[in-house]
Design a binder for these strands. Structure first.
Lengths: 195, 195, 195, 195
DNA sequence: GATGAATGAGCGTTCATTCAT
DNA sequence: TATGAATGAACGCTCATTCAT
């Protein structure tokens, strides 16, 4: 983001930085169009750069995916405390936060699927999501529990995984609505006793 | 289409039949070890047969997958009416049936994932599951609704997909328990009012 | 399978003979439908016999092809002397005989092509044709030359190959007519002097 | 589409260009040795390059075949008008042009055969030949007809096919001489009346 | 730093041929 | 003798990854 032309050793940086931006945009589009498993070539072509350039900036596919979604994951993480402050109840904050997460996932074709793969690239991606979102989710769950609004104990990781899973295939199939599923899950969470 | 094991009028059938069993076992193991997308060669190697043998018995990957899981899906489908008869309430029957389905899915690594893929083979598999299980699930839901035990309307397909999704990655990761997720979902289903 | 209790060693023969007939018919049809390169399996399927049966009767593809066309090649060979006797001039006999040969070839999809291949099977086929037809063609050419009706000397093998080649692809392509080509060739043969 | 060897603005082009040459040479040799149906792997091996390199330069087999023969077909096409100008009579020009075509075909083992195949690659090749050579042949035929030197009407496509067919197997077999066959055919073409 | 040509392992699939039944 | 199940080499093709320019 530093545009200062004077910088000296920063000169190349500006170029590289811009290239990286281009790459991220292209990857974002490619992920939307073809899923995160899209061939690297396709991303390079979309960005109008050589394939080697991708590998220079992002040695593994995970690096690229993480980079593409970093901002949004950060936003989502940041939204937790905010929602907690601004919502009427912790439970409402939790619901709204989960909805944010779902909105994010269902608009990223193939992302939820990839979070469950077990190749090296996907594991790194998974780790990134977990590291950033589990703590936030934990705070929301704790607050709701402290307020006595939760009928059950649940680990934040368990909840995030459940929500993430429910989002898989959420586009493409008109007979399946991830939001409805997540709604049920959250209802179950708040229910005090079982039949 | 005659599957009766006694029927074959040819002498060779016994041999081929046994080979097919071997193949199915190998495929089952391979699916568990590497998911249903495992290369055909790997299955052949595991079974100790030539690659052509696989193609003779199962011309498409979908044929093989369906064959591998047919018995268990049929069992699951058959269990629906039985549970409905033998359980104290339709709601209990539904819960138990879903648990059967979950038990099936979580012990088949990669199966739940594959149900969400969109290549030809996976689509056939998906269709097979849907055709057999959606009607059964629908009966159970209807019975529970008629008994006033359901707090929400839900389409059987939607429920099955949600449950199936929650089972993804259910083994392998000790921090995630699909049964807990499904329990929450079912609780949410029975909940009458939302917070 | 032998139902005649009396027959002795001739009993099996009849069966095998009939089987061979069936095979030849099936092969003939298959050759027409898909060319002589049709997979062995397809011929077996068409004949309703096992694939092993083909290999028992016809160890190589050439054996089968030769068997299929033997009758017609023999007929063609036999027609030479007859035409020579019955035609007004040797030259007319030659023309008519070539026309017979052309009629044979253009109705056998892929046969003319195969006569030019160089794998083992095709070579055997080629040899069979040459052995039977070259002498006949030679007699006709000699007779025409003796009658002073030929403007040029030509070896019978050379002529047969030329005619055979002109027949390649004679079906299928409406823009090419082998008979016209052969007509030109024969005209050229009778022409006395060149421009 | 720019084929000018100097034009490339990238440094790498020279390298790739040379590699393409190598590929074309290897393909030419492989076609001669085994026909144009030679496996792609064999061409790659002959060129000493990876199989992917072939696909990079020539996405389909047809592209490769056309590339291999383009220059010579173009030369042949270009020779038509020249011969017409420089020959004593249109008929002589036609004869010489056909001889050029024959010289080309008989030195490309398997090429004439392939022109008659019907797979996608061969069809493309066929089309390329037809598109380039039929018009030229047509001009020569027209000129000869206008000069009253032709005894027969013939379509240029028909003539080219006949000549092409006569060249099949023209090497390899010392008993068959395509040039003699073509000579007869051309004689037949000029002959005014039939016996 | 950027490029994109080259690589080659790996995939699905076909089919001639063998051989146990 | 007939069968057809089994074999496995071979093919076309894709694409992640490396590396010379």
């Amino acid at each position: 983001m530093t545009t200062s032309p004077s910088a000296g050793r920063g000169a190349k940086r500006a170029d590289a930085r811009r290239n990286e931006e281009t790459l991220l945009e292209a990857a974002t589009q490619a992920f939307v169009a073809s899923g995160v498993e899209v061939p690297v070539r396709a991303i390079a072509a979309r960005a109008g750069v050589g394939i080697g350039t991708i590998y220079r900036h992002f040695p593994t596919r995970a690096d690229l995916i993480v980079a593409v979604y970093r901002h949004q994951v950060e936003s989502c993480a940041a939204a937790g405390p905010t929602l907690l402050r601004e919502s009427a109840t912790p439970s409402t904050a939790l619901t709204r936060w989960v909805e944010l997460f779902v909105d994010f996932l269902v608009t990223k074709r193939g992302l939820a699927e990839t979070l469950n793969s077990d190749d090296a690239a996907s594991t790194a991606l998974h780790t990134f999501f977990v590291d950033r979102l589990v703590p936030v989710c934990g705070e929301l769950l704790d607050a709701a529990a402290d307020a006595g609004e939760l009928g059950r104990d649940i680990e934040p990781y368990q909840l995030l995984r459940a929500v993430g899973n429910l989002c898989i295939g959420g586009d493409q199939d008109p007979r399946y609505d991830p939001r409805e599923s997540v709604g049920l899950l959250l209802d179950g969470l708040q229910r005090r006793e079982r039949a």
